[in-house]
């Protein structure tokens, strides 16, 4: 855990901005740079974003890779829902409900992109979906925020920021394309 960010007194306080727009932008740039460095360029890479904000982040990372003079990186998406469909409103285990990956993953290095890494259950469901799609050489995980508290043995390869938020608090990633502005905010579950 590097650069931990602990919000000990935030329970009833107003939502706290953990990353502002400039910091979000820098984090995405740095993740893209690390991906290119670790993989010796972007030639064999494909990005798979988890709907919805992971998919937007994947597009941003692809833009960065392109802007750095690297080649076009294919971007696909996985739609993984963590809510049960029986109407009871309780969180169930995440499962795949949709997929848009119109290219082969054979022998590719797949970078899976999500906004927040928490229990690891969404990533597990995503790994199942990817392994179903063919023989990827490897799967690497990039997240904007790692908030710890893992329930499964999952770890990220690229992390924008580690945030330790108290139980009961939520970490919200806001992105311009969806929310009008970039920010990472920590607050009570009903704050948005």
């Amino acid at each position: 855990m590097q650069s931990g960010f602990f919000l000990g007194v935030a329970m009833s306080a107003a939502p706290i901005v953990a990353l502002d727009a400039a910091q979000v932008g820098r984090s995405i740039k740095r993740i893209a740079m690390e991906i290119a460095e670790r993989n010796g360029g972007a030639d064999n890479i494909v990005l798979v974003g988890i709907v919805r904000r992971g998919a937007t982040l994947a597009e941003r990372i692809a833009d960065e890779l392109r802007a750095n003079g690297r080649r076009e990186v294919p971007v696909g998406t996985l739609d993984i829902s963590s809510y049960r469909d029986d109407g009871k409103g309780l969180p169930g285990d995440p499962r795949l409900i949709g997929r848009d990956i119109p290219f082969s993953l054979d022998a590719k290095r797949v970078v899976l992109v999500d906004d927040v890494l928490y229990t690891g259950r969404t990533v597990r469901a995503a790994l199942d979906a990817i392994s179903d799609l063919g023989r990827a050489e490897s799967v690497q995980l990039a997240v904007l925020v790692d908030r710890g508290e893992r329930e499964l043995p999952i770890r990220a390869d690229y992390v924008g920021k580690n945030i330790q938020a108290p139980h009961g608090q939520r970490v919200y990633v806001r992105l311009t394309e969806i929310d009008g502005a970039d920010a990472v905010v920590v607050g009570n579950a009903n704050v948005k």
């Binding site: 490897s138 799967v139 043995p153 770890r155």
Partner: peptide, 9 residues
């Protein structure tokens, strides 16, 4: 030599 984002506890 990990090929997936899994780390043993």
């Amino acid at each position: 030599h990990r090929a997936v984002p899994i780390r043993p506890n």
